[in-house]
Nucleic acid binder design. Structure first.
Length: 497
RNA sequence: GGUUCCGUGGCCGAGCGGUUAGGCAGAGCUCUGCAAAAGCUUCCACAGCAGUUCGAAUCUGCUCGGAACCUCCA
């Protein structure tokens, strides 16, 4: 079997992945800012890194997956706004800041459950780690890489860059930053434009505030991730993930902070997912083109022709490599929905086929092809998590499965061993790694019973060639969104829309 | 302006030197009481121009078009 290679943003290369401690992996992923509702764009990193987390588990690693909740709000770094976003919104909605944070945290968790993502091992909050952040800032000051002005603390990027490679991750050159930095207000506190805040002094109207050695204030944007990743994963860990738009300044600053305190680059492998675009443009609040997850699931948005289920979206995201942009459109979502259903039904057929396969494959060429296609799953995932290629191979197997189910292919064309290989791999990939669960849950046994009865009555009618009755049953069920399908093997199956 | 990336068939998307990727849609056929599903077959490609090479969607150069980051951003 091949070994795992990942594209490391830090080196811009695909590298062989070797964990610091054999068998164990520490992974930190930048989580949501719970000052508002998550949109489709936010779903991508959390689904992407969920797949990565699941694949690492599948590969036999013991993984500690840390994903933070930013509940202290992100601040206008340059201090353009004297108050943080969460507080602003709280005033508008007349809510306590923590009430707002709680509301959106709950909503986020609800969406993650819908997407069938595994819970992280630790989900630390920024507000719960103020002490750690203050300690880290103190250390940066004592190391000489930060300075205090009017109750705020700034990181001295220029000084840092003399000794460390600032800008390596994001491919930025310090001098360019100096020239191109925008002229923003309230910058006079900073020694240099590219310096960033570690701690901000809180003006009197600011509700979220904590005591610190520099007066009352709140933490800067980047320090929480440095503090929490160090606390839970150590001075150096294996994987740091997030959206590409976080490369600069967020992750660059994170590296600088951790470098000063821990003398190590925090993570060995930096993985970044690309953006979801809409009409070729990044989905983001600045562009005013977001579709919220609640809107995706309900279809209640002007750009949506209808609702799209969480699994459809998950499948949609999986069909593309995580480092490519993914363009949203109704057409693409509907194509994903149909494709996913076909794959899912083939999987169910695979489980239904009664194996009277022999030791020897009846069709050696087909058997070898199927075996090869399945064995490639791991190779593709080991190649920087290429889920798109895995799905393509799965779809190549689909006609084989369906043909066997329909009797168009003899069931002993594959060897017994190949059948079990198929079952094991489809289960591992579809359920465990890709997390694509069946959505149409007929958990209601009564409904199941009623349908069985109707199917039975219809079968009798058909035997008597009473097609009026049989068609009536099928057509009316169809109108209710229940499709009856006469299978080749004489059975009848149904699916709910 | 700086840095980086991308441009693949009707749509979405893999591929990164030699292969039919794959999905959705379209066409034809098979199966079927009809239908749906399924199966089989099939049409439609690599932005443009030049170069390297036995061979390029894949490498190089230029042109055109688009995007991300440089500011909160997944």
């Amino acid at each position: 079997m091949s070994s795992l290679k990942v594209h490391n943003s830090y080196t811009r290369q695909k590298e062989l992945f070797t964990p610091i401690t054999p068998g164990y992996i520490g992974m930190y992923v930048c989580g949501p800012t719970v000052s508002g509702e998550s949109h489709l764009g936010h779903a991508r990193p959390f689904i992407t890194f969920d797949i990565i987390y699941r694949y690492l588990l599948y590969s036999g690693y013991q993984v500690r997956y840390v994903r933070n909740i930013t509940d202290a709000g992100h601040f206008e770094e340059e201090g353009r706004e004297a108050e943080d976003k969460i507080v602003k919104k709280a005033v508008i909605e007349k809510l306590e800041p923590m009430e707002l944070v709680q509301k959106y945290t709950n909503l986020f968790h609800w969406a993650m459950r819908k997407f069938n993502t595994l819970e992280p091992s630790i989900e630390p909050t920024a507000t719960g780690h103020i002490v750690e952040q203050i300690e880290m800032i103190k250390q940066i000051i004592s190391e000489g890489y930060a300075y205090v002005v009017n109750g705020s603390v700034y990181f001295d990027v220029k000084k840092y860059a003399d000794k460390y490679p600032y800008g390596k991750l994001s491919g930025r050159i310090l001098d360019d930053l100096l020239e191109t930095s925008r002229d923003l207000e309230n910058q006079e506190e900073k020694h240099n434009k590219q310096d960033f805040a570690l701690w901000k002094h809180a003006p009197p109207e600011h509700l979220m505030r904590w005591k610190s050695p520099w007066g009352e204030g709140f933490p800067g944007w980047h320090i929480e991730c440095s503090a929490m990743s160090t606390k839970y994963l150590g001075k150096q860990f294996d994987i740091h993930g997030g959206g590409m738009d976080l490369l600069f300044p967020h992750h660059e600053s994170e590296i600088a902070q951790s470098m000063v305190c821990n003398k190590h680059i925090p993570a060995r492998y930096w993985l970044h997912n690309n953006m979801i675009t809409i009409n070729g443009r990044k989905m983001g609040k600045s562009y005013n083109n977001v579709i919220r997850l609640t809107e995706m699931f309900s279809g209640n948005h002007p750009m949506l022709q209808r609702a799209y289920s969480p699994m459809t979206i998950r499948f949609f995201i999986l069909q593309t490599h995580y480092r490519s942009t993914l363009d949203f459109s109704n057409e693409a979502l509907q194509a994903a929905e149909k494709g996913f259903r076909r794959l899912r039904e083939a999987y169910e057929n695979l489980l239904k086929i009664s194996i009277d396969g022999s030791e020897e494959a009846g069709d050696k060429i087909l058997d070898e092809k199927v075996t090869r296609l399945v064995h490639e799953f791991d190779d593709f995932m080991n190649d920087d998590f290429n889920s798109a290629k895995v799905l393509a191979n799965m779809f190549e197997v689909v006609p084989v499965i369906n043909s066997i189910k329909n009797g168009q292919l003899n069931s002993n064309c594959l060897s017994r061993e190949t059948y079990s290989l198929l079952r094991v791999y489809f289960k591992n990939y579809l359920e465990d790694i890709f997390g694509l669960k069946e959505e149409i849950m007929v958990d209601n046994q009564k409904l199941d019973g009623v349908l069985e009865l109707l199917i039975d009555i219809r079968k009798d009618a058909k035997t008597k060639k009473d097609y009026n009755t049989s068609d009536k049953i099928r057509n009316q069920l169809q109108q209710m969104g229940i499709s009856l399908k006469d299978d080749k093997d004489g059975g009848v199956s149904y699916s709910l829309d």
